[in-house]
């Protein structure tokens, strides 16, 4: 099989191989192809809180052109927004690698993997942000505070509650930066950050404005959390 020097160069690099935990909220995973056609490509994109691709990794079961196509694609993807990533066309890959006609399908598959990984990320985001609800009033108040104090969003953390053995205390605090391993989601235009390990406990959260004399002014409840319906909110005194 005669390959172009460019194809061989990308093939031999194999620098961007690997992957991430596909359960992370800010990871999009796309798997395309099948053993029957001889190429299977798995692309994983790691997004930051601004939906920019921080890192792209791949795994391939396929020929030299398939591996080279993914190595090139992942190199191109780093630093791109979703829209910019979608602009990468299979022709870009095919031309850069000087793929012959019979190998062109590898570049097409690479393009499909990009779309699949992005679609996966977006659907995850949509799913999780529906799971946290914020009332309009609470959202307005939070946004006011954020612009006043210059924060980028709220950090959600949890602790075992005092009320009973299954209770959880949710803590919200304003943050100006997010840690590298933090997951970011959005609800009503507000960014929420949390550690990936507590994702299951985030589902069902509802944030509302408190009535009466709650210190920080918000009430956080978890509709899936039984039997203790009301968990108290502690504000951590960061603002």
């Amino acid at each position: 099989m005669k390959y172009s020097e460019k194809t061989i160069a990308y093939y031999e690099k194999m620098k961007n191989t690997g992957g991430f935990d596909e359960n992370l909220c800010n990871v999009g995973t796309g798997i395309v192809g099948s053993p029957l056609c001889g190429d299977v490509m798995k692309l994983q994109l790691f997004f930051d809180e601004n939906d920019v691709i921080v890192e792209a990794k791949y795994k391939v079961f396929g020929c030299v052109s398939a591996i080279a196509s993914m190595e090139l694609a992942t190199t191109l993807l780093r630093g791109r927004t979703i829209d910019e990533a979608r602009q990468i066309e299979n022709e870009d890959v095919a031309q850069s690698l000087e793929l012959s006609d019979i190998k062109r399908h590898c570049s097409v598959l690479a393009k499909e993997s990009i779309d699949a990984a992005i679609d996966d990320y977006i659907s995850k985001k949509n799913m999780v942000s529906k799971v946290i609800t914020v009332t309009n009033l609470a959202a307005d108040r939070i946004k006011e505070s954020l612009s006043e104090h210059g924060g980028i969003g709220l950090l959600i953390s949890i602790e075992r509650g005092d009320s009973c053995s299954s209770s959880l205390d949710y803590s919200l605090s304003y943050v100006t930066t997010a840690g590298d391993n933090m997951v970011a989601i959005e609800a009503k235009g507000i960014k929420f950050f949390y550690e990936p390990e507590i994702e299951l406990m985030i589902r069902g959260l509802d944030i509302d404005v408190a009535n009466g004399d709650e210190e920080c002014g918000f009430v956080v409840t978890n509709k899936y959390h039984k039997p203790c319906q009301n968990c108290s909110c502690r504000c951590g005194g960061k603002f």
């Binding site: 099989m1 001889g38 020929c63 030299v64």
Partner: peptide, 27 residues
């Protein structure tokens, strides 16, 4: 777990053949 043509590319010092689709003219 590995595709035949890629194996042949990696095993540079031996000349063998493969039954994989990528090594055939008709895919």
């Amino acid at each position: 777990g590995c595709e035949g043509e890629a194996i042949m590319m990696e095993a540079k010092h031996i000349a063998v053949s493969s039954g994989s689709a990528c090594t055939s003219n008709k895919l």
